[in-house]
Amino acid sequence: MTRLLLGRLIQAVLVALVVGGLCFALVRVLPGDAAFRIAADRYGPDALTGQAAEAVRRELGLDRPWPELLLRWFGDLAQGRLGNSLVSGEPVSEELAGQLGPSLWLAACALALSLLIGLPLGLASGLRAGSGLDRLALVGAVALRALPPFVLGLVLMLVFSIRLEWLPPAGYGTWREMALPSLTLALGLAAVSSRVARDAVAEVGATAYYRFARLKGLPAGAVVLRHGLRNAGIPVVTYLGLQAVYLIEGVVVVESLFAYPGIGHALVHAVIARDVPMVQGAALVMGLMFVLLNLGVDLLCRLLDPRLGAAR
């Protein structure tokens, strides 16, 4: 256990160093004048002028040597500071805090919903592998995965906001606004997690001990609960653990469709505006979250299957 924690800690530090340095290097070498990019984001397309860009350049000292800027970022990081956004001038940590919270909520809801939808469906189709339900579920999963998330989101809006008038199409603040974006994400996730669970269950169903248990006369339900769920759980947890990162980073389009504040949006904005500290901060937070999630997945897998811990 200590080794596991220590390993993840080292990974976290490594991630921080690499993410910080890499983002800095990449954003610095990108073509395009950073002062103009920042000014465009600050003042908007109508008021952007060359004078504004020059003012930004003077104010931010963008022409200072890069080692100085990078060292300062690492120095700040060591003291727990992420610097100030070049666009708004606000501390990056404050800007991120405002967007990370909604992102985490959205991710948590989407994960929970996808489990609610994907697990039972995966179990059911795995137990009856090859049946009509299994085939239908495959087609459904492929259809959901072949639909870009913004199309799926639009369909959900049309159904739940316009046709049924149950939920608002956009906004944020209460659970009502969160329902549609998290459902959009959850359906995409459930499409795959249901297949992962189905494969795992089908695998278990084909093993000797499962067939033996059935021969013993145990009802299918009891066997699944005892052997199937536990065995199917590990791949599903592993899969969802990795997907949680996607939930946090890859949801930009869902965020912008539903006008939901989130860190994906913040990251895209920051890359476009060449807001180096924001890019570094957002990427760092996502990287650390990935490390944390991996730790959680490891621990959960051990809980599900104690042999994993012993094997190492």
Binding site: L113, L133, L136, G140
Partner: peptide, 11 residues
């Protein structure tokens, strides 16, 4: 039609 059971009771 496409989602069939996926939407299901939870939804």
């Amino acid at each position: 039609a496409a989602l069939g059971g996926i939407l299901g009771g939870a939804l």
